[in-house]
Structures are given as C-alpha cells and as structure tokens.
C-alpha cells in the first residue's frame, strides 16, 4: 500500500497545480505578517486606548499569535479551494489523461488504488495545513514575537503565550478535519467525472451554497443550518473559547468525519464499478 501511495504522490507532484497551494501560502502569509509588522504600532495604540483601563497587557498584543488568529479567520474559506486543486484531479485527471489504460490493467485491485488515492489526498491536505501552520504560527512568532492573545468571544479573553500555543495546535487539528470534508467531497466528484475542473467547480458551488445557509440569517436557512456541513466549519474557533466546549466540538467533529466517510465511500463504490472508457 505504501508503494501505491508513493506512486500517487509522485504523480501528483509532477503537476504544477499541486504546488499552487504551497506557492499561495508562501507568498500570502509573509505579506500578511509584513503588514502586521508595519502597521503593528498603530494597532497597539488603538487597542490600548479602547481597553487599556480594563486589562493589564504584558508586552505587545500585536504578535505572532494575533497575526495567526486573524489570518485563520480570513483564510479558512480560501484554503479549501487549494485542497480541491489536488482532490479534484487525483481520480478524474487520470481518466482525462488516459493513463488508467496502463495503470488499471495491472494485478492490483481498483479498491487498493482508489484507497491509495484517498490517502494521498488526505496526506496532501495535512501537508497544506502543516505548511500553513508553519508559515503563520511558526514564521509569525519568529517575526512578530510571542505574547498574549486577545480573543473576542462573549467579551474579550486574554490567553497567555503558552495557553495560546496549544490552542492553536488544537485549532489547526480541527481545521484539518474541516478540510477533510472538503477534500472528500471533491474526491467524490473526481471519481464521478473524467475532467479535473468539474470537481473543483462542484465542490466550490456546494461550499458557497452551504456557507450562505450557514451565514445568512433568514428563517428558511435556520431550518437547514444543522444539515449543512459548512455549519461546523467554524469548529476550530471553539479551541479559543473558555472553557472549551468539548461536547459541541466532538459532535461537530463527528458530523464532519461522518460526511467525509460517506463521500469517500461513494467515491470508492463508484470507482470500483466504473467502466474505463478514456
């Protein structure tokens, strides 16, 4: 199985699109951090003016933790798109490229091949989130330093650096589960068609509809909200609540993992039955 997964990674990393995620993060995050380092003094004065009489700040609030927290808030909608670049292509791309004609005629079952593709997709998802963590939390704390993290949730909560750090690790872990759903959904579409673009469009469309349901406060959407997996996408933020609402988090994670499983099973079944005609 490791040989099959290794194959998938070689094939994926022979395509330029696979690198786009890393390139985007590599360009975007230093830019954001640079913005914080330049505008940081200004922000610090604003914050102190507003809250200085209620809190005693130790050191600067504009630090690597704050930058990471704000970046995660803004980018948790963009990163899924990066994941679809690989997830959408990994099954359909070989159909479009005609390479199943040489790949699927060998003495390895389709089940093992599709599972290797699924695992490779999940590994890629993990690589992207780890790279994101390194470039935000890692580079951020080196560049902007550590300090307290202020989080707004039912008022302002201040976390010490040590506290903030493990909450971030937790937050990234939850984000990874988010991304698994997106990856699985896109992977399912990838198994259904023979082109690498359709699954990306399909996944992003569902994401947009889902996020509209999750975020637009109208009655009709209220009823649908629990049924849209996007509703559980903000689970990572709960790592920064105090106390951490474990009950809610675990049920949310279970729902996300359940969706991933269903999408993955559909992909596997479809792929196993599919006639290879390209």
């Amino acid at each position: 199985m490791t040989a099959l997964i290794y194959n998938e990674l070689i094939k994926a990393f022979s395509k330029y699109r696979t690198y786009i995620s890393f390139a985007a993060i590599l360009v975007l995050l230093p830019l954001v951090l640079w913005g914080f380092s330049v505008g940081g003094g200004h922000m610090q004065r604003d914050i102190e003016q507003q809250f200085g009489d209620q809190f005693l700040f130790v050191g600067t609030l504009v630090n690597g933790f704050m930058a990471t927290y704000i970046t995660m808030n803004f980018l948790w909608i963009h990163i899924p798109f990066l994941i679809t670049l690989l997830a959408g292509d990994i099954v359909a791309g070989e159909g479009a490229g005609g390479t199943y004609r040489i790949y699927l005629i060998r003495p390895v079952s389709r089940l093992r091949i599709i599972l290797a593709k699924l695992i490779a997709t999940y590994l890629y998802t993990l690589m992207v989130i780890v790279f994101f963590a390194l470039m935000s939390l890692g580079l951020g704390t080196i560049w902007l330093g550590q300090g307290d993290l202020a989080v707004v949730h039912d008022g302002i909560i201040l976390y010490s650096a040590a506290d903030a750090f493990w909450r971030f690790l937790l937050g990234f872990a939850f984000s990874f589960v988010n991304l698994l759903v997106v990856a699985s959904l896109c992977f399912m579409f990838s198994a259904l068609v023979n082109n690498g673009i359709g699954p990306i469009i399909g996944t992003m469309s569902i994401m947009f509809v889902g996020l509209a349901i999750t975020n637009i406060p109208i009655d009709f959407f209220d009823a649908l909200r629990p049924w849209s997996f996007t509703t559980y996408f903000n689970i990572w933020q709960q790592a920064f609540h105090d106390p951490i609402p474990w009950g809610e988090i675990i049920s949310g994670l279970a729902i996300l993992l359940g969706h991933s499983l269903v999408f993955a099973i559909i992909a596997v079944v479809v792929f196993n039955r599919k006639d290879i005609l390209t």
């Binding site: 070689i10 094939k11 022979s14 490229g97 005609g98 390479t99 004609r101 040489i102 005629i105």
Partner: peptide, 11 residues
Amino acid sequence: FIEDPDFYANL
C-alpha cells in the same frame, strides 16, 4: 496496451 497509449507526461 489499448490504442495510442498515454503516459504521465511530466515524468
């Protein structure tokens, strides 16, 4: 092989 075989073109 089946008709005009295709390969992983970047490799």
